[in-house]
Design a binder for these strands. Structure first.
Lengths: 238, 238
DNA sequence: CCAAAAGTGTTAAAGTTACACCCATGT
DNA sequence: ACATGGGTGTAACTTTAACACTTTTGG
């Protein structure tokens, strides 16, 4: 990293809001920076991202960040917006970390944020697991409804990005399948729609209007060991 | 400008796509750079914009640019997207102009583009007037459907921004009033809706669904000297 | 048998689209 | 008188929203 440091543009960074859905609630992928001690963890969490290379396009950087943190090759990714408040890099803790990380004095950094939707796999731990492990993992999924304080203005970026997700999903609900597990129940998909639209959705209307679209295939598989009627699984056919 | 040059961040710029409607077609406000001779004008036109100051927020810069070029104090303005292709500042003509303008070597510049909607006033000339005047004005309205080649990737930025306008206007058609003259006819407003939606709009449906909204007030004024039935004027009440 | 979530149709209301003729004005 | 664009209502269709009971399973 030190060797590449000369190729970084210390004025522009790319941060990625990677969202997933665990069948119950929306999650965002956060990474842990530096080697700080646990007591100070409150703002050692941040969005995955880095400074732009001098010869790199913005989309290229976003794809690289997302692939390197999730392993996914061709993620859905969309540039969302730029943040450039002069005070966004003024928290002393953030400044210290930055100057350590990039080995040079920095001023204001403009960041371009990207939205990416992703299926949650068990390669990356969840928050609960992250907290109970002796050695903190470098990344984990956190529920968007209950986030700790993050580095820089990353809490703000996530809130804005969620609004954008809500807006986009209103237009093209099919994009939500990017976040669904390979097999899912009608209730899981409905909970996702509810969280994204911010409204309760009528069960029967949902079955009629969404679940029998041609691109949703019912499988001959049902939930196991549930103390109520077992739900059918479905999968998405693009 | 030389005195301020030290305060510019030579890595990030802000460019503004200022759109207006002359009652007939969509227009974009372009500025002319430098003092080049007319023969070379083909890419001396550009979007109004400049480098970001080191202590300036992005929105602040956009407002300043728009106010200084149009005189309008509180314009509607929305950040649209960032452009960072390493080749976007590679045209030799663009490089030459940039290095003359900012008196230093520059590499790739990331630009943040803004969309602004504006009423066309007669303070700023139209393209036709611009071309017939002996001394070229430093800015003019150009029809978006027939643009010359512009500096950098500004043609691309305008195309992308128009798509964004079309999308946003589908959601909130009221924003289009920002572009309308203070008094307008039903046909003018309909032509704007048609250009923005890309479809022919039925005259009767338009009268029913749009023209009798509570925020559109019919005036007791009619067109003068037209060789057909005179159209009524309306105004918008926020 | 009880609790808990799954699954399944119909009807009313609202919104959207299609469509044709007469009116006012200048030349 | 004629050419040009302005102004007006109704009916079919599509989309959306409201609403309740029976089924399956584990405890």
């Amino acid at each position: 990293m030190d060797k590449d440091a000369l190729n970084f543009d210390p004025h522009v960074s790319v941060d990625c809001v990677i969202l997933g859905f665990d069948g119950d609630s929306l999650q965002v992928l956060l990474s842990r920076r530096g080697n700080e001690v646990p007591e100070e963890q409150y703002n050692n969490l941040k969005l995955p991202g880095r400074l732009l290379h001098t010869d790199e396009d913005l989309d290229e950087a976003a794809l690289d960040i997302i692939t390197s943190v999730t392993g996914k090759r061709h993620p859905l990714v969309k540039q969302f917006r730029a943040y450039g408040s002069p005070s966004r890099t003024s928290n002393p803790k953030d400044v210290l970390w930055l100057e350590n990380a990039i080995k040079q004095k920095i001023g204001r950094i403009v960041t371009i944020s990207y939205l990416s939707l992703m299926r949650i796999t068990n390669r990356t731990p969840h928050r609960k697991d992250a907290e109970t492990q002796a050695s903190y993992p470098d990344k984990a999924w956190y529920p968007v409804q209950d986030l700790p304080q993050l580095a820089f203005d990353h809490n703000l970026i996530i809130q804005d990005t969620l609004q954008e997700l809500y807006r986009m999903a209103g237009q093209q609900p099919q994009m939500l399948f990017e976040m669904m597990p390979a097999k899912f129940t009608a209730a899981q998909l409905r909970r996702l729609h509810e969280q994204v639209s911010g409204k309760k959705i009528d069960v029967r209307n949902f079955a009629k209007l969404v679940m029998n679209k041609p691109y949703i295939l019912p499988l001959n598989e049902w939930e196991q060991n549930v103390s109520h009627r077992a739900a059918r699984f479905y999968r998405f056919k693009p």
